[in-house]
Design a protein around this nucleic acid. Structure first.
Lengths: 236, 236
DNA sequence: ATCTGAAGTCTGGTATATCAGATCCCACAC
DNA sequence: GTGTGGGATCTGATATACCAGACTTCAGAT
């Protein structure tokens, strides 16, 4: 047992580092390739060469293979046995990823509304309040961070580990794109209204309402993303 | 160019085999481990040893590592960098997998109701009719096969590649358990009613109804599965 | 000129070797 | 007895080697 911080020489003990944070080569390759695919830096159907990738990254093929296996399971590439892997990502794929996220987030919002406790509910409301302030002052960085906290808090409140993990994989626009989205005051305002409504529904335990609102929020903000990245429109 | 079948020596040309069907060692390891985990043959938190697994399968560690990477992305195991992988599956995980499938299948049913055409709709109705016949004659094998066709047909009608792929990964009870489920006449009857209602809602284009019914169907039949495998009950 | 197929090349799949972090164990100091 | 630390060992992470299936090319046959 590690001695309690109380009474130890240093009043500030060092926090244990989460093993998940350790970076491994295959993780780096995985993240980098994933980001590149989602940023549209590969054409759909494009064939990727393991040796070439390994050479570009300056590593052996082993971690590259593992990263490709992960991307395959994520559905971003397709592996034809003995033939190689090809990229599977375009606008329709992105649309479906948004729909998947909408389906899962709304399910988790439903459960969060049923399972959230008083203290956690107060915290969620507090986050929503901070979002209102950040929206007023147009603080994009805070908004991005708060947005993350907001959804993360709902995930925890739902007490769903698997679903939360699944959603993480549908999360495909990164901070830089979020920043672009938050540039638009109208979008900021709309997002705030939705977040506020979702928080209220969850805190008051209205599971069905929370579910509907979360779904609409994810789909609508997803469409905003699609318009920015692909510059197009589609019916859902 | 391959000559057209018309006028060729054989009136019946052989269908091109799908490269996906080819079996590779890592796929075998992946499927086998996956089935073993879902069948509860590992304890939650149990540590698995790559070398030991490779030895058991009589293969090297490379395909084992790749299979583990896939399982990790699926959320069935957790990899602690430099420390190894541990099993992540128990009843609560199974519950969440069912919820995930419910969320995704209902989304896809919604889209199918919007997008299905006349001929595909007729086919779906035909499958539902065959299910009614098979239910009457208690033909478990046909029911299992038809059930697969039914959902598969809905997936295709929704024209969603990514979502369909995602759902495949939540599909965790195999034919042997399905057979057990279909042993119960009451369960067969209930499933038939649900399938019939879903088919009707999709064919008539009532997207919201199709969505609700699909969700209830997946959750309810999932609970039946949980009761059989884990012998327990929980509120959703 | 077109088709066939055999040889050469490319590339993914698997096996093996090596490196280094994590864990375990025990001797030694207090 | 307790706790610290050095080293042995285990094991995952990476690199390398090798094999075999898939694709390409081109010569020879028709």
């Amino acid at each position: 047992m590690i001695p309690e911080p109380t009474g130890s020489p240093r009043s500030e003990a060092f926090a244990k580092i989460d093993p998940k944070f350790q970076m491994t080569v295959r993780d780096h390759v995985h993240r980098t390739l994933r980001a590149a695919i989602l940023a549209g830096r590969f054409a759909t159907g494009e064939k990727v060469n393991e040796r070439s990738l390994a050479e570009q990254f300056g590593v052996s093929t082993t971690p590259v293979k593992e990263a490709l296996r992960q991307l395959e399971t994520e559905g971003l590439v397709e592996a034809l046995p003995r033939r190689g892997v090809i990229i599977r990502f375009d606008m329709s794929w992105a649309e479906e990823m948004i729909l998947a996220r909408a389906a899962l987030e709304s399910m988790i919002a439903h459960l969060a509304a049923k399972r959230i406790g008083k203290p956690a509910g107060a915290e969620l409301t507090a986050i929503a309040d901070l979002m209102a302030k950040a929206t007023l002052s147009a603080d994009a960085d805070s908004l991005i961070s708060l947005n993350e906290q907001f959804h993360e808090h709902i995930h925890r409140s739902s007490r769903c580990g698997y679903l939360a993990k699944l959603i993480e994989r549908q999360q495909f626009y990164d901070a830089s794109i979020r920043r672009v989205i938050h540039m638009d005051p109208a979008e900021r305002q709309k997002a705030l209204e939705e977040h506020t409504a979702i928080a209220k529904a969850i805190v008051t335990g209205d599971a069905d309402l929370a579910e509907r609102q979360m779904r609409n929020h994810v789909v609508r903000s997803g469409e905003t993303y699609l318009n920015i990245v692909f510059g197009n429109k589609k019916d859902i």
